[in-house]
Structure formats: structure tokens, C-alpha cells
Design a binder for these strands. Structure first.
Lengths: 137, 137
DNA sequence: TTTAAATTTGTAATAATTACAATTAGATTT
DNA sequence: AAATCTAATTGTAATTATTACAAATTTAAA
């Protein structure tokens, strides 16, 4: 599907900037920060403003087209993959990895039964990634 | 156990400020922010500096006497309960609730087998809390 | 008591994020 | 196609959270 239509499917009105940002998110599964996205797209869209990147990501999240990760205390990261999956933050290189999700159906039921209306699930793990662990030798 | 000895048990050298901050954490299971702690202790320790609160919490986390929560994108929160448990952030009132943890032994093994050395587990849920849901009627 | 080391403090710097008004672009109407 | 309206983008300034760091204070040791 073209990104144009992909955005429409989430109820987001496409624009040059929005398409470029969503494209970046879908093609770079690196969980980029606002800064990452801004710097990467500056070349193609020289007039791009960082405020637009903020606005656009907020819009994406509101429409469910992206998810915000708060795993890294230094800044927020974004993920174009909105399916349920876990994240691993390496404390050494600060890269964020995708990991398979734990099943949550039962827990969701439990929590909802107790009156907690869950809208977002985040499974975060922190430690040392395989690549950094290998380097330690 | 006195907080003095409690800190020692984590290898943290006690001081007036450190005892006051740890006491606050242990007595207020509200997952306070730096600001919360600072404002709460200002009365008792008028000379308290916010930098000290930052330094102290960093020290506690390094020694395993507290854990840092990155559930709220606006700021970092701290928890004196370092046992494994889940957290729920209400998007309306911004309060953070404790919830029972999902078992993680199997997954830890899996991840470790794949070379991810897990040091921290965070189970975050976001949505509307029972109290705010009740108010909506 | 003197000295040394660690802790605390206050200020200044940095970095992330938000507010907001002005500009620009896109769509609609005439 | 020109004029009008609306929405999106931009740039700047303000705000907020956090960190850096040197000076002052406290605590422990000699």
C-alpha cells in the first residue's frame, strides 16, 4: 500500500511532511527519536521544522498509526509498528530492539475486571544487547 | 528496620537527606517525581537542594534501593518497592498504580538464550483508572 | 585539632518539549 | 482562474527536566 493510502486508513490527511515521516518510520525499524527523524529528513525537505515532526508524531499516535516508547528516560522514541511486541533497551549502545510479546489477554481481562481500562501495553526490558556483550570480551 | 540500616543494607551511606528521601519513598507508594519529593521535604529540610534529590535517587537506583519508572513521558518517577510488579498510568489523573506482575522466568531464559542480558523488567499499562472512569458518568 | 574525603548546595548550562503567532500550502467557492 | 477559507507548516520564544560543576558544608579519620 502506498503511504498516502496508509495514512488515510488511519484517518490522517496526508501531506508531503507526513508521508515522509511515516515512510521513515516504516522503513527504519530503529525506534527513532524526534531528533533522529528530523535530521534524517532535513536533506530531502530542507524547510522541515522540528515542530512539524513533534506535531506529526503526536498526530500519528492519536490516530494509532504509531506508538510512543518511553523506555529511554533521555527522550521519547517512536515505532511505526503498532502491533504488540516487547522492547529491549541496551544500556551500553542505547539501541532499542524488538522482542516477541508476552501474551496479555488474561491479564487485560483481570485488569479490566478491576476497573482499569487498559489502552496501552508496554513491555520494556533493559540490559546489555548481544552485540555489546560480545564486545566486552 | 530503621531506614539508617535499610540504606546500609543496600550499601548506601546514610545521611540526613538520604534517610529523609528513602523514608519518603517507603512511606509514600505514589511513585513520586523528583519535584514531588523535593517539595515534600522542603519543609523539614529547608536547605535541601533539588540537585541533592537528583543525586540521591541516582545513587539509590545504582545500589538497587529504588527503581526508576519511565512510564510517564513528562518526567521520571521513582519507586521504593524494587520487587517485580506492574504499573498502570492513568492518562486522565496521571496517577501511577501498582498491579501484580506477570511471570517473567520463561521469557528471561529465552531472552538470555538469545544473548540479551536482561537487567530490568518494566511492565507498563496506560489507560483510565477506576476512579477516573467512575467520574465520567 | 587538623586534615582529608565525601556530601550537599546553588548556579549555570544543556536538552527536550511546548506554546504560539506568522506564513505557507491546499482545497473550495465563485 | 482568482478569491477565499481552512488546515498545515514554520520559526521563534518560553518552559521544563535534567546535568555539570565549582564552592561550601558536613562527616570521618588521623
Amino acid at each position: 500500500m502506498k503511504t498516502y493510502d496508509y495514512l488515510l486508513s488511519y484517518g490522517v490527511k496526508p501531506s508531503v511532511q507526513r508521508i515522509a515521516i511515516m515512510d521513515y518510520l516504516l522503513e527504519h525499524r530503529t525506534h527513532p527519536s524526534i531528533e533522529d527523524i528530523y535530521l534524517a529528513l532535513c536533506d530531502d525537505i530542507p524547510t522541515l521544522s522540528k515542530t512539524t515532526v513533534y506535531n506529526t508524531l503526536k498526530l500519528f499516535v492519536e490516530h494509532g498509526a504509531a506508538q510512543m516508547l518511553t523506555i529511554d528516560e533521555r527522550n521519547v522514541n517512536y515505532d511505526g509498528d503498532v502491533s504488540l511486541h516487547a522492547h529491549f533497551l541496551c544500556k551500553k549502545c542505547n539501541k532499542i530492539y524488538d522482542l516477541p510479546a508476552a501474551q496479555e489477554e488474561e491479564r487485560m481481562e483481570q485488569f479490566n475486571m478491576n476497573g482499569f481500562a487498559v489502552q496501552e501495553i508496554h513491555q520494556y526490558y533493559k540490559g546489555i544487547c548481544p552485540s555489546c556483550a560480545a564486545e566486552e570480551e
